[in-house]
Each structure stands twice: as structure tokens, then as C-alpha cells.
Amino acid sequence: MNTKTGIDVLEKKGFNRFRNERVGLIINPSSVNRNFECASRIFLKNNIKVTSLFSPEHGVKGELQDQERCLSFKDEKTSIPVYSLYGKHLAPDKGMLKNVDTIIFDIQDVGARFYTFIWTMELAMEKAGQYNKRFVVLDRPNPINGLDIEGPLLEEDYESFVGLFPIPIRHGMTVGELALMFKKELSIGVELEVIKMEGWERALWFDETGLNWVLPSPNMPTPDTATVYPGMCLLEGTNISEGRGTTKPFEFFGAPWLDSKLVLDEIKVLSGCKLRPLYFKPLWSKYKGETCEGFQLHITDRKKFKPVITALEIILTVRRTHPQDFEWRKPPYEFEEKKFPFDILVGNTTIRKMIEENYSIKDIEEACNEGLEEFKKTREKYLLYK
């Protein structure tokens, strides 16, 4: 395939629609065209007046670790103000938008509900509507394909910055499609335009698009990471290391107290993947500088691999085999001060309680699937690609 992203399509069709406008860009290092030119340079070289940049989690430069607050500053090379949307503010305020006519969102997503960029987009759409600004999304592929969906759905009362609307963990949509859904389903009164991709089909994985992967966050180095992330990020809600601080985040996992043999003896057959025992020492994050025993999660058949249910079976098994050591992570987490991090990641309390009560993984999977058929019907209305 020779997929063209929204920014590639825009370059081909021209920038006349922005010629007399003041533009604000929500971007990061993944905001590039096929030739690795960043979006801000592309707009500037086409004589578009870029008046503001907006920084999502990890920063507009992409150098910040998870949950590290961004600061606002002025870009030294262009003198364009950069406003933080991850810290004191999660959405642009009136002052940030006073010199902006159109907000443009161009960031590579990874297809998981708790990857925060889509909620930066949603909150910015609300503010754009409030202050009569146009909002444009330059669409990009869902890197783990646009067909496969895994629950659970986000339940009411579990909204947070890792989930503000009831979609499944693995939603199977692009950022452009999500924007259309948010506008309609949340009644956001904003003038919205999605610049569609060309040459992308729902069945495609990122490595089938002909595009080059540019990591959208420091711990998302490859499409393989994105493949496991919708499940393995759930380990953030536990005291198991999810591999941050290693060369294989979300593929490595473990803890200083973990006995890999106990886990392998107990765990059931995992679909589409294998666990290989190993040791690792994180350079930062959980268990910094400590030797951890654990595993690398190897994908053997990504079409059969179910990241969410795989991660839940791992958590269930580790808790069962290490009852004195396993713990749920305590808040705060992603601006949430009261609820368990695991609960806002998974989207409810049900799954955590089922794990605590030692339910079978089959029963847990059935609980994860509740409401998915109804979601698929809603989702269908906003799909832009076959």
C-alpha cells in the first residue's frame, strides 16, 4: 500500500483554505509527512500564518516521559508561542485562542482509549466550538488496524483524561473518525473538517501502509509496541513493571518479586503470543535500578492476538501466584485523585473485582464484551474508510 496521511493529502491539494487564517497546531514529533518534514515547517513554508502551537502529553518536542507536566514557552527558532495542554490546562483557554482562527490536529494515535492524544483533541474541539474557531483533523492510520475491537467500554462515572467518552479500549477507529463521533455524540458545536487519508483500508496494519513509523511518545518506539499497548498498558494500574525504562516498553514486564516459573506453570494458553522469561533493570519508572524477573511478550500471530484479554490473564495469574506481593497501584494517576488507576484505565470497577474474586478468564472476557455490539452500530455511522 501507498497510504497518504492527511498532511500528505493537504500538500497535494494545496493550502488555499488556510491562506487568510491564523492557524494553531496541535502537534508533536509524529506530525510529519512522508518525507519526515514536520507539520509546522510545512505550514510555514507554504506561507500559512502559524500563530500558536499546542503541546499534548510528552510535549510538542516529544521529550517528556509519561505524566510529566508540560510547560508553555516560546519557540526559539520561530518565536511562536507554545501552549501546554498537559498540566494546569488540558484544553486551550480563551487567551490561548485569541490569535487563532483555525485549530489543526495532526498526531499519530495508537488505537487505544487511554492514549491521551484523542482526549486532547476532544477537549480542544469543545473549546473551539465555545470560542467560534474552526477545527481541522489531518487523519492518520489506526496502526493496529481499523477492524478489531476489544472492550470493555468506558462506564459512566469513570471518565478521566484517559477516557472521556464510552468507547472500548481498542476502538478500531482513526482520529478523524473519532472526531466525527465526538462532535455528534457529545453535541459539540464546532465547525469540523476531517482531511481524509488516501490509500488506507481498515484491514491494514501500520507496516502495510508504506509509511515510516515516527514514535508519537517516548515509550512507543515501534508498531510492535502499539500492538501490545491496548492490553499491557493496564499493568500501569498495578505494581508490575510495564517495561518503562527499558528498550522494550510494554513488551517487557515483571518485578523484583516475580517468579516466572510460577506464572508459566499457572497461565493458560495465550492466543497469538508467547511469553519468554527474562530479567531486566529499568533505568527509570517502577523499580528503577532493580533487577526484575519477568517476561517478554512475543507476538506470534497478530491476527489472533487479543491484547486486552492477554494482559488481563497475565494480571489475574500474577495476582493468583503472588498474593503477598501483587498490589493495585494507588492514585493519583492522570489527574485523577480518588479512583484506582486500574479502574479508570479499564473503564469500570467490575474487572478489578472479578480478578480479586478469582473469576475465570472466560468470565472476564464475557464481561469485557458487554455493550460492544451496540457500540459497533454507533461506530458504523462515522467510519470514513472501507
Rank of each mutant, 00 (worst) to 15 (best):
N239S: 05
I314K: 02
L283M: 11
F253K: 04
P282G: 10
F280D: 09
E251S: 13
C292Y: 00
K306I: 08
W257G: 07
S260C: 12
F252T: 11
T291D: 10
T247N: 14
H298T: 15
L235K: 04
P307V: 13
P249Q: 00
P249V: 09
V318W: 09
Q296E: 14
E313V: 04
T291F: 08
G237T: 13
G289M: 06
E251W: 07
H298E: 15
T300Q: 04
F252A: 07
E251Y: 08
K248C: 07
T300I: 10
P282Y: 01
F252Y: 15
Y279P: 04
S271V: 02
L264T: 06
T291E: 13
E266C: 12
D301I: 00
T238E: 05
T300P: 13
G243V: 11
I299A: 01
L316P: 09
C273V: 12
G254H: 02
D301H: 02
S241V: 12
S285G: 07
F250N: 02
R302M: 02
S285Q: 07
S285D: 13
Q296P: 08
L264N: 05
T300A: 00
A311R: 04
F250D: 01
G272H: 01
G237C: 09
N239Y: 04
L297P: 15
L262K: 15
D265M: 14
F305D: 03
H298I: 15
L270F: 02
L275D: 06
T247V: 13
P277R: 00
F250M: 00
F252C: 09
C273A: 09
I309S: 13
F253N: 06
S285A: 12
V308T: 08
E290D: 13
S285P: 06
D301M: 01
K268W: 03
V263H: 03
T238L: 04
G245V: 13
T238G: 07
V263Q: 00
L278D: 04
A311W: 06
T317F: 07
G243S: 04
V263D: 03
K281Y: 00
K306M: 11
R302C: 01
F253H: 06
V269S: 13
G243I: 09
S260L: 07
R244I: 12
I314Y: 03
K306N: 14
G237H: 12
L316R: 15
I240T: 10
L297I: 15
Y287D: 05
K248D: 10
S241H: 03
S241P: 11
S285E: 09
R244W: 01
P277H: 00
G294W: 01
K303L: 11
K303N: 14
G272L: 00
E242Y: 01
F250S: 03
D265F: 12
K286I: 10
L264A: 07
I240H: 04
L312A: 05
I267Q: 06
Q296C: 09
G237I: 11
G272E: 00
T246C: 05
P249M: 00
V263M: 05
I240K: 01
L278H: 04
F280L: 03
K248W: 09
S241D: 05
